[in-house]
């Protein structure tokens, strides 16, 4: 077998067949279905959740993960925070001509490992090879199917004044790890991306009897953007306390240096919860039992209903309104 992906790998012929057999089928291990053009799933009755996401990461391999791992965890987490139990995935690959087969194998392997960890099957897949320059290495699309859990309490209309806002762990790890991995800034850090499927941890919280009103995964745009959207969508005033934000020293140091706000850095293995005040402690205890949730913390509260907004209170007592990530770092100090 060649060491690089060629256009012929994608033409549906012999080479393509080999690629699928040797890399994908062996990794996902469900040959039985491959004789049909579509996969049949037997689902119990109830509501089905579907989500799809395309993954474009630079670099493809970074400390703590790779594009394959993100492609699974991103979709699994989207299903989980919506209150669904992830059931299966489909995966689509768009591969640039010349992409090393060894790398492809690595990505597929890690994708399979994460799917296994999350307890979901990859039930359908697709590959396309595009000409050199037509893509940047490798893109992955995953679609996830889940079943709505009967015990799901998620209902943002119940968000009320006094509710606690929790995060399952330190923020900004992924953003800084990726930036460091790109190497262009010379940023030295041993920080790893947090990317991980969180469905088991979320299961534990829900099955532990916590009345979760809302969950979100703060990926692109970070905790701030996610909470701004949540606040605006559900007419809540949310106040965060800067002091309470769990932030690793490496993230804090790098953010200081680069002038980034960790609240706007991407996370790939974190979940935000809104629970009633009485469930705050229980939620924390349940989260703390998981390695991904060891540093879970209460970071703020819902302080009112009305025109939705996110506020940040600093240790010096100032309180400012946060907005979506704007991409503009324009100074205002005159």
């Amino acid at each position: 077998m060649d060491r690089k992906v060629t256009l012929a790998h994608g033409d549906g012929g012999e080479l393509a067949h080999k690629l699928i057999q040797q890399i994908f089928v062996s990794a996902f291990g469900n040959q039985s279905e491959s004789r049909f053009d579509a996969t049949f799933l037997s689902l119990s009755s109830g509501k089905i959740a579907v989500t799809t996401d395309s993954f474009v990461v630079n670099p493809l391999f970074f400390p703590g993960g790779d594009i394959g791992k993100i492609a699974v965890s991103g979709t699994i987490n989207d299903l989980s925070v919506a209150g669904a139990v992830p059931y299966c995935l489909t995966v689509g690959f768009i591969i640039e001509e010349g992409f090393p087969l060894a790398d492809l194998r690595k990505v597929v392997k890690s994708l399979a490992v994460e799917a296994e960890k999350a307890g979901v099957q990859v039930v359908a897949g697709d590959t396309k090879v595009v000409e050199k320059g037509g893509a940047d290495g490798l893109y992955i699309n995953t679609t996830g199917i889940g079943l709505q859990r009967e015990e799901s309490t998620i209902d943002p209309s119940r968000i009320a004044s006094g509710d606690a806002v929790l995060i399952s762990g330190p923020i900004g790890d992924h953003g800084i790890a990726i930036l460091a991995a790109r190497g262009e800034l010379g940023l030295m850090t041993d920080l790893e991306s947090d990317c991980a499927p969180l469905n088991h941890m979320i299961d534990a919280v829900i099955l532990g009897g916590v009345d979760v009103k809302m969950m979100r995964d703060p990926t692109r745009g970070g905790v701030a953007t996610t909470l701004v959207e949540l606040a605006e969508d559900f007419d809540a005033i949310i106040e965060l306390e800067e002091e309470k934000l769990p932030i690793r020293d490496q993230v804090r140091g790098a953010s200081d240096l680069l002038g980034f706000d960790p609240l706007y850095l991407a996370n790939e293995g974190k979940v935000l919860f809104i629970v009633s005040e009485s469930d705050r402690q229980k939620t924390l205890e349940l989260l703390h039992q998981f390695p991904e949730g060891r540093d879970a913390a209460v970071i703020g509260r819902v302080t009112g209903k009305g025109v939705g907004q996110l506020l940040l209170e600093t240790p010096l007592g100032s309180k400012r309104r946060l907005h979506r990530l704007s991409g503009m770092m324009l100074p205002r100090i005159c």
């Binding site: 262009e184 980034f260 005159c334």
Partner: peptide, 23 residues
Amino acid sequence: EALPIIFRMAEKQINSPLAGTCG
């Protein structure tokens, strides 16, 4: 330790708006 990073931010204009101000 910080300077090389500042230099690269400046060169690549990462998170570095352009300014021409007296202040």
